[in-house]
Design a protein around this nucleic acid. Sequence first.
DNA 1: TTGCATTTACGAAACTTTTCGTATATCATT
DNA 2: AATGATATACGAAAAGTTTCGTAAATGCAA
Lengths: 130, 130
Amino acid sequence: MSKKSNLPQPTDAELEILQILWEAGPSTVRFINEKLNEQQEKEIGYTTTLKLMQIMTEKKLLSRNTESRTHVYLAEAVQGDTQKALLKKFVDAAFQGSATSLVMQALGNHQTSQEELDEIKALIEKIEKG
Amino acid sequence: MSKKSNLPQPTDAELEILQILWEAGPSTVRFINEKLNEQQEKEIGYTTTLKLMQIMTEKKLLSRNTESRTHVYLAEAVQGDTQKALLKKFVDAAFQGSATSLVMQALGNHQTSQEELDEIKALIEKIEKG
DNA sequence: TTGCATTTACGAAACTTTTCGTATATCATT
DNA sequence: AATGATATACGAAAAGTTTCGTAAATGCAA
């Protein structure tokens, strides 16, 4: 049983920040801003990142510890739940709700390693056994 | 070998229009607008749909036959190519590029029928042989 | 042919998301 | 205490997307 907090869905820019927080754990604005600028060619200003993270905190996507001068931010949105919600929206919008079409497309396009295929096959078996 | 036309990616509202055109084939603004309003609770004005389709035509996502007074619009963006491009962007943004994670999530959440599972298994076998 | 309904054209308003300028506070160093 | 570097707060500009009001053109019916 997972509690459903029903957070708003993150925008694209917000999602990039969440990805970093999910991977790195609690972080400062400076750290996130540097990570973002490693990933992209276009330089993002520090205050831009700050503002986004403040907005995300208002939306409860993040929380922060303000004890020290340098605030430390924490992802409140759970990765799996967020992905699930985004995926549903995406399947509806781009594949008219057919998750299978999406899976076929995803498997077809990418080259997938044998290990990954095995993972997927295992999951399918598990589903078949019910 | 498929020609790459490299069209801009459609916005959400544009994608809804494309979905209808992909399914129904060449259509008028009135028809699209009615379909949209069947699908949604919120009423969308006729000129709103018209404007969007005009913009999409400028972007080459659509083309139109203007011979008769009532223009007939045609999807230029190919469904499979568009889905592929959108999927790549989505996998990167939400699953950090891991198509396998996305597939696992998609299979895990939705209940998938035995037929669909069989389809997927067949595709996996094909990939493994290929 | 006059008038009504329907269509397209055009521009701009309304919203949403992203970006940043500027002000102010805090900390460390001298 | 003064200086410089770094932090947060706030508001608003900039950019992107969606919506629609209004005007002008076209076709149809009386």
